[in-house]
C-alpha cells in the first residue's frame, strides 16, 4: 500500500480523534466532578453544529460561529444544570442519567421539527479550504490542520486553567473530596454549575468544528455519543489525560481500519475497548483525579 495514503489516513484519524478528545474532555470533566453521566452530550454537539450552520447562514462568518456555538451551548448547559439537574443531586445517580437521556431525545426532536431531517451543507471558511503542501509530497486539507492545532490549543488552555488558576484548584479538589471543599468555605453548587457549563461548551465547540468535515443532521450526535463513551471508558472515566490519549488513539485506529478493512471500521473501537478493559479494568488512566 502507498505510504502516502497511510500518512493521509493517519492524519484524517488524528483530526477525527481531536473531535473525540473535545467531546470526551467535556464528558469527563462533568463526570469527574458531578458524577453525572451526561447523555445529552451528543445532542449538545449536534446543537453546536446547528448554531454554526445558522450563524454562518446569517453572518457568513465562520469565526463568529466558532465563538457563538460553544457560547450558546454553554449557556444552555448552565440553564439545564441549574433548573433540571441540580434538584436531583443527593439522589441516586440514575436520576440525572435518565434526565439527560430524555433531554437528548427532546433536543433531537426539536431540531427535526424546526429544521427537518435532512443534511445541512456547511463548508470550511475560504481561508481554510485549500490543501496545505508538506515536503512537496503530502497535501493535508488546511481545515483539518486547523482543527488539530486548535484542539491542541484548547487542551493546553484547559490544562492551564485546571493547574494554574484558583478555580482550577477548586475543581481538582472538588473532584476528589467535595465535602471537604465545602468545609473550606467554598460553594460547590456554584462550581458544579460552572463546570457543567464548561463541559457543555466543549460539546458545542466540537459540534461547530465537526460541521465542515462531517454531515450536519439531527441525529449526528447519537453515534458520536456512543463513540465518546467508548473513549472515556478506554481513557478511564473522569481522567482528562485519559480522554486525550484515548481520543487520539481511537480516532487513528478507526481511520486506519477504514483503509485496510472498511467493514470493521465501525466496530473496531469496541474491540479496542474490550481489550483495554481486559488488561486494565479501570481504563488506561485508571480513576484517580482529573489530571492523573
Amino acid at each position: 500500500m502507498d505510504f502516502n495514503v497511510i500518512i493521509m489516513q493517519l492524519f484524517t484519524g488524528l483530526s477525527l480523534g481531536m473531535l473525540y478528545v473535545l467531546l470526551a474532555l467535556g464528558l469527563s470533566i462533568i463526570f469527574g466532578l458531578l458524577t453525572v453521566v451526561n447523555f445529552a452530550h451528543g445532542s449538545m454537539y449536534m446543537w453546536g453544529a446547528f448554531v454554526g450552520v445558522f450563524t454562518v447562514a446569517w453572518t457568513g462568518n465562520f469565526w463568529a460561529a466558532l465563538v457563538l456555538a460553544p457560547l450558546g451551548v454553554g449557556l444552555y448547559g448552565l440553564v439545564i444544570e441549574r433548573w433540571l439537574i441540580r434538584p436531583l443531586y443527593g439522589r441516586d445517580i440514575n436520576y440525572p442519567l435518565l434526565l439527560t437521556f430524555g433531554l437528548q431525545l427532546i433536543m433531537i426532536e426539536v431540531v427535526r421539527i424546526f429544521f427537518g431531517t435532512s443534511d445541512h451543507p456547511f463548508s470550511a471558511p475560504a481561508l481554510l479550504s485549500m490543501p496545505l503542501e508538506v515536503m512537496g509530497i503530502f497535501y493535508f486539507p488546511a481545515y483539518r490542520v486547523f482543527l488539530i492545532v486548535f484542539t491542541a490549543v484548547i487542551c493546553f488552555v484547559l490544562w492551564f486553567f485546571l493547574e494554574k488558576t484558583d478555580l482550577g484548584l477548586i475543581i481538582r479538589a472538588g473532584t476528589r473530596d467535595p465535602l471537604m471543599v465545602r468545609a473550606l468555605g467554598i460553594d460547590m453548587n456554584l462550581i458544579w454549575w460552572l463546570v457543567f457549563g464548561i463541559g457543555s461548551a466543549l460539546a458545542g465547540l466540537a459540534g461547530i468544528l465537526a460541521a465542515p468535515i462531517r454531515s450536519v443532521y439531527p441525529e449526528m450526535g447519537i453515534a458520536m455519543l456512543v463513540e465518546c463513551f467508548v473513549v472515556t471508558v478506554v481513557g478511564g472515566m473522569g481522567s482528562l489525560p485519559g480522554a486525550i490519549v484515548a481520543g487520539i488513539l481511537l480516532g487513528i485506529v478507526s481511520s486506519l481500519t477504514t483503509l485496510v478493512y472498511p467493514q470493521m471500521a465501525d466496530i473496531v473501537i469496541f474491540l479496542v475497548m474490550a481489550v483495554v478493559l481486559l488488561v486494565r479494568p479501570s481504563g488506561l488512566f485508571g480513576k484517580a483525579g482529573l489530571l492523573e
Binding site: M180, I186, A288
Partner: peptide
Amino acid sequence: PEERRIIPGLSVRENIKLALLKS
C-alpha cells in the same frame, strides 16, 4: 475533620491555598 481529609492530588501549599480562597 476526623481522619484529616487532606485532599489527594493537591500539594501542601495547594491545600492551604484552598482554605484561603474565600477568606
